[in-house]
């Protein structure tokens, strides 16, 4: 045990009061930082909106080294929508095959899908046998899409899809 004044009741009360005061100051500081961080986040979002009014997100489809389609979010929303349940969660968006057909792709051997690679590997290569109607580009909360299918493992998903290369 510690020696000296802290062994007395007054000493222990003093330590407790000191601790409480320290905690109150720490709580006020931490809450202040948290509120400031939330405020900065809202400001960043607002300034990003003001500085860029155009649609920043597109999915580019390429074949034989040429771009055969650039689809904005609204273009993707206007396509026939598919709904599947993958890993217990409902996913909705256009099927990959529908996106490819929209860009005039009817025959291919495999497809490479590239994402921003910010939340995952950002890449998957799929043969024609691996792609079915249930593989789709799901719309997420960030205003981008992710490639999902009921059979696809969570770690294989490609989020924030940017580019689809058809071969």
């Amino acid at each position: 045990m510690e020696q000296g004044g802290e062994d007395t009741k007054e000493g222990r009360d003093g330590v407790r009061n000191g601790l409480r005061r320290k905690q109150r100051i720490a709580a006020a500081l931490t809450l202040g930082v948290l509120v400031a961080t939330v405020g900065i986040a809202w400001l960043l979002e607002a300034s990003a909106r003001r500085s860029d009014g155009s649609a920043p997100y597109t999915v580019r489809v390429e074949q034989a080294g040429e771009t055969i389609g650039v689809l904005e979010l609204e273009d993707l929303r206007s396509l026939e929508q598919q709904s599947v349940v993958a890993l217990g969660r409902r996913q909705e968006g256009p099927a990959l095959l529908t996106v490819l057909a929209t860009c005039g792709v009817d025959e291919f051997e495999h497809v490479e899908v590239f994402g921003m690679g910010y939340r995952d590997s950002g890449y998957i290569k799929l043969s024609v046998e691996e792609i079915d109607e249930d593989m789709l580009l799901d719309f997420n909360n960030r205003g981008t899409t992710k490639l999902v299918s009921p059979e696809m493992a969570w770690t294989k998903r490609v989020r924030d899809v940017e580019r689809i290369v058809v071969k």
Binding site: T37, V38, A41, W42, L44, E45, A46, S47, A48, S51, D52, P56, Y57, M116, G117, Y118, N141, R142, G143, T144, D160
Partner: peptide, 21 residues
């Protein structure tokens, strides 16, 4: 990390206010 990877700040900021809350 997104900024370090060169992801556009506008994309990263989309929904950041709600996300922070």
């Amino acid at each position: 990390v997104g900024l370090t990877l060169g992801i556009p700040a506008g994309f990263l900021a989309a929904g950041l206010g709600v996300a922070s809350t």
